[in-house]
């Protein structure tokens, strides 16, 4: 069982497209009708976008709702601290990591890479005057930079209404947080692309995406890593989790300048290493493609 994968959304788009083509074909011969159909389908597509958005919000809300209930149950007294977090901080932490998850829809990247490679589209894309992986990254960044602010807005509304403000939150720290989130999402995408690139060798890399996602989800998304036994924590700090989700969310609920610098530094290292890995895997994959002719 996996969480929201966006196949459903793309399906609905396909239906709209098929219907559109069908109508265009049928509308053939009736003057002016064609334009009506085009107009309508564009309008529908936009409405569809809004509808998808709203349903995505619903999914986000369900998760947050469950976690609010869970932590309300777990905290026996309002003043209790668990792993150093107050109840409000704990819920805001989940809200922020889930906001990044939903707002980035990172499964789309891995899916795109896999489809390009397995579908043979890669043969055209790799001869274009750009680097394929950076092209995917840029396209994806364009997508989340629209989605994420919407989820951020929603998160702020749900948070202030159902949980209350984050204790000690200062507006001045927002730019630093935004930077951390941006880096975090990019690093995540780089790793997802790396896994997607495995499709050069194996038929279906999706199962690896599941495991990677689950690692991010269990260790970094639903809890802060402080909640794990002390012995494990240095290890977690070395995994991408620290830079992808824990870091940014931690800064939002409990901002400390020193921590911010540390996380940004770690992100820089991760981004460099991740990109190096991505280029390396891509080069190997392309070479394999040339040898075997796809």
């Amino acid at each position: 069982m996996n969480r929201y994968e966006n196949s459903a959304v793309s399906n609905a788009g396909d239906i709209a497209k098929r219907r559109f083509l069908g109508q265009l074909r049928r509308g053939h011969g009736i003057p002016g009708r064609k334009y009506g159909v085009i107009y309508r389908s564009v309008l529908m597509e936009n409405l569809q976008y809004v509808a998808n958005m709203a349903l995505g919000f619903f999914g986000y809300f369900v998760f947050i709702y469950i976690f609010i209930k869970l932590w309300e149950y777990m905290y026996r007294t309002p003043e209790e601290l668990i792993a150093g977090y107050s109840k409000e901080q704990m819920i805001w932490y989940v809200m922020m990591t889930e906001m990044m998850w939903f707002g980035s829809n990172a499964s789309a990247v891995g899916w795109q890479v896999k489809t390009d490679i397995r579908g043979g589209n890669i043969a055209y894309l790799m001869n274009k005057p750009y680097h394929y992986t950076l092209y995917i990254l840029a396209k994806y960044t364009g997508e989340w930079s629209i989605r994420l602010p919407m989820y951020a807005g929603l998160a702020v509304v749900i948070g202030t209404v159902m949980v209350g403000a984050i204790p000690g939150f200062r507006l001045i720290t927002v730019p630093a947080m935004a930077l951390c989130i941006m880096f975090g999402l990019t690093i995540n995408a780089v790793f997802k692309i790396c896994i997607g690139l495995l499709s050069f060798w194996i038929e279906d890399a999706t199962p690896f995406q599941w495991l990677y996602d689950k690692l991010i989800l269990v260790v970094g998304t639903i809890f802060p890593i402080e909640i794990f036994p002390g012995a494990l924590q240095p290890f977690f700090k070395l995994t991408p989790i620290y830079t992808v989700c824990y870091g940014p969310a931690k800064l939002i609920v409990d901002f400390q300048p020193a921590k911010c610098v540390e996380i940004l530094a770690a992100q820089a290292v991760y981004l460099a290493a991740g990109c190096g890995l991505m280029f390396f895997v891509y080069r190997k994959g392309v070479k394999k493609l040339y040898v075997n002719g796809g």
């Binding site: 069982m1 969480r3 929201y4 459903a8 959304v9 399906n11 609905a12 239906i15 569809q48 509808a51 998808n52 349903l55 619903f58 999914g59 369900v62 998760f63 469950i66 209930k69 869970l70």
Partner: peptide
Amino acid sequence: VRVEILGNQMVMGIVSFATY
């Protein structure tokens, strides 16, 4: 026509709740 996504969200909603 447009119930597809709704249905999927409902099913995923069930699964989300059903694991707590």
